[in-house]
Design a protein around this nucleic acid. Structure first.
Length: 202
DNA sequence: ACCCAGGTGGCCC
DNA sequence: GGGCCACATGGG
């Protein structure tokens, strides 16, 4: 057991309180299908992007009433340039519009597997969905407990000497092994890590 | 004028 | 399995 992990959580928690002003991907826990789809779309758009830019892209989609997987799929298949233009502020817009189409197809295709590992494996086959995006979708849109590893988490792990292996899979399993399996906890913990990481950058 | 942001896929070894 | 690169925007 790695006690450090739980210790980090409680000290971050003490420092920042409950991250209820939950930000960005986890602004509010999405309840409706519409909100969940927004989170899925954001999880693509936020790749290597400033959140302000993601918001610009989201508001463009909203204005056109295209903030849904179906809307994006329809528009993108008919007129990819239109989709590209709308999401342009989020950067890497040609890639991301392609990614949005593939994720849209995935979720409109069939039933989503209930089993987390099966779902995760299938998501990782989708073009544009790497480990962090897959886990963000599972955790923040679908409310299932997988621990998201990102640059901030990796930095923290190195600083705290949590392990000697900093690969994605190893860290994810390490965090999951040493925490209760709770999606609320995972969401809050990850939020705190990012809040703290951003805090230190300044 | 730089530098950066919650990554990913493709290619190479 | 790991290292390197392209991908693009708006903000500080």
């Amino acid at each position: 057991m790695n006690k450090k992990i739980r210790k980090i959580y409680s000290s971050l928690r003490q420092k920042y309180g409950k991250p209820k002003e939950q930000w960005r991907l986890w602004c509010k826990r999405p309840k409706t299908t519409k909100e969940k789809e927004r989170v899925i779309i954001e999880s693509i758009l936020t790749q290597r992007a400033n959140w302000k830019n993601v918001e610009l892209a989201i508001s463009n989609l909203k204005k056109e009433k295209l903030l849904s997987l179906k809307g994006i799929l329809k528009t993108g298949e008919k007129n990819i340039k239109k989709l590209e233009l709308l999401i342009k502020p989020s950067g890497f817009y040609k890639q991301k519009s392609e990614y949005l189409l593939s994720i849209g197809k995935f979720f409109s295709g069939k039933d989503i597997p209930n089993n987390i590992d099966v779902l995760r494996k299938e998501l990782l086959q989708v073009k544009g969905v790497g480990p962090e995006t897959a886990d963000s979708i599972i955790l923040y849109a679908l409310h299932k407990p997988v621990f998201v590893i990102d640059e901030y988490t990796r930095r923290l792990a190195k600083k705290e000497g949590i392990s000697k292996d900093f690969s994605y899979e190893y860290l994810r399993e390490l965090f999951e092994k040493n925490l209760p399996k709770s999606y609320v906890l995972y969401q809050d913990f990850h939020a705190l890590i990012v809040i703290d990481g951003k805090n230190k950058r300044k």
